[in-house]
């Protein structure tokens, strides 16, 4: 039997850790009004899910989970590039990165 992290740290602790990181990211999205920080919080949430996927993948001994993480990373990279481009455009138009600058989107 090969040595594994799960001998000393049970899977539950990885779940709890990624759960905490996910919730911190969620608080960031709800709390901050700076669009850049909101984006970073979304990244944090995506990463928490990635960590969970890798933990389960290692736990089950099935590399599919890690391939999936790879795809999540690609989508996250694309999302950030587009999001920041949109953010630049908003900044150019309203000269602010405060979410309240886009209040009209509510209606």
């Amino acid at each position: 039997m090969e040595k594994s992290i799960f001998d000393t740290v049970p899977l539950e602790q990885f779940i709890i850790l990624s759960l905490i990181l996910f919730c911190i990211g969620m608080v960031g999205v709800l709390r901050r009004r700076n669009m850049i920080v909101v984006f970073m919080s979304i990244e944090l949430m995506l990463n928490a899910v990635n960590l969970l996927a890798v933990a389960f993948s290692a736990h089950r001994g099935d590399p599919s989970g890690q391939v999936f993480v790879f795809f999540v990373m690609v989508v996250a990279a694309a999302e950030v590039a587009l999001g920041l481009a949109i953010l630049m455009m908003i900044y150019r138009n309203v000269k602010s990165v405060d979410i309240n600058a886009l209040k009209q989107l509510k209606w």
Partner: peptide, 20 residues
Amino acid sequence: LPARGVNSTENGTVKVLGKM
């Protein structure tokens, strides 16, 4: 939680993931 699978140190290597 599901039971632990057979774990192998090979799983995370470029070779295995690249093939998949």
